[in-house]
C-alpha cells in the first residue's frame, strides 16, 4: 500500500499543532495585557516547559512520526513541532522578562546571560545527542 501524507493521524496532529500555535500567539498578543508582567513571564515559561516536555514524551514514545513523508520534510515530526512551539513560548517569556520594569537593566541582562549559559551547559551535558536512526 502506498503511503500518503494525508491520513487521519497526520491531519489531526497538524490541526492540533496549528491550533496550539495560534493559541500561543493569541495568548501573547491579545490576552496577555490583562495579567501582570510577572504572570505573563511565568505563563509563557510554563507554556514552554509544557510544550518541550510533551515533545520529550513523544520523542521517547514514537519510532516513526514524521508528518510529511517527503524528502526535505522528514524533520517535521511531532516532537520537533512541539519543540518549536516551546521555543516560541520561551522566546516570548524572555522578551517579557526583558521588558519587566521591576528589575534594573543590568540585573535583567545578567540573569538572561547566566540563564542562557546555564541552559546550554545543562542541555549539552544531561541530554544525549539523538542517534542517527532517529
Amino acid at each position: 500500500m502506498t503511503r500518503t501524507v494525508f491520513h487521519m493521524r497526520n491531519v489531526l496532529v497538524t490541526i492540533g499543532i496549528l491550533t496550539a500555535g495560534i493559541g500561543i500567539v493569541y495568548f501573547a498578543a491579545e490576552f496577555i495585557d490583562q495579567i501582570s508582567p510577572w504572570s505573563r513571564m511565568a505563563s509563557l515559561a510554563l507554556l514552554a516547559v509544557m510544550c518541550t516536555a510533551l515533545g520529550r514524551h513523544f520523542e521517547a514514545e514514537e519510532a516513526d512520526s514524521e508528518l510529511v513523508d517527503r524528502e526535505g520534510w522528514r524533520w517535521l515530526r511531532v516532537p520537533t513541532a512541539l519543540y518549536v512551539l516551546g521555543l516560541v513560548a520561551a522566546l516570548g517569556a524572555i522578551i517579557v522578562f526583558l521588558g519587566l520594569e521591576d528589575l534594573s537593566r543590568l540585573v535583567k541582562a545578567a540573569i538572561a546571560i547566566a540563564l542562557g549559559l546555564g541552559i546550554v551547559v545543562v542541555g549539552a551535558r544531561r541530554f544525549d545527542e539523538p542517534s542517527a536512526d532517529g
Binding site: L47, M50, C51, L54, H57
Partner: peptide
C-alpha cells in the same frame, strides 16, 4: 516528561 507537561499545564492555569 508527560507528568512534567501536565504539572506545567496545571500551574499555568493556576497562575
Amino acid at each position: 516528561a508527560l507528568q512534567v507537561a501536565i504539572l506545567a499545564g496545571a500551574l499555568l492555569v493556576v497562575v
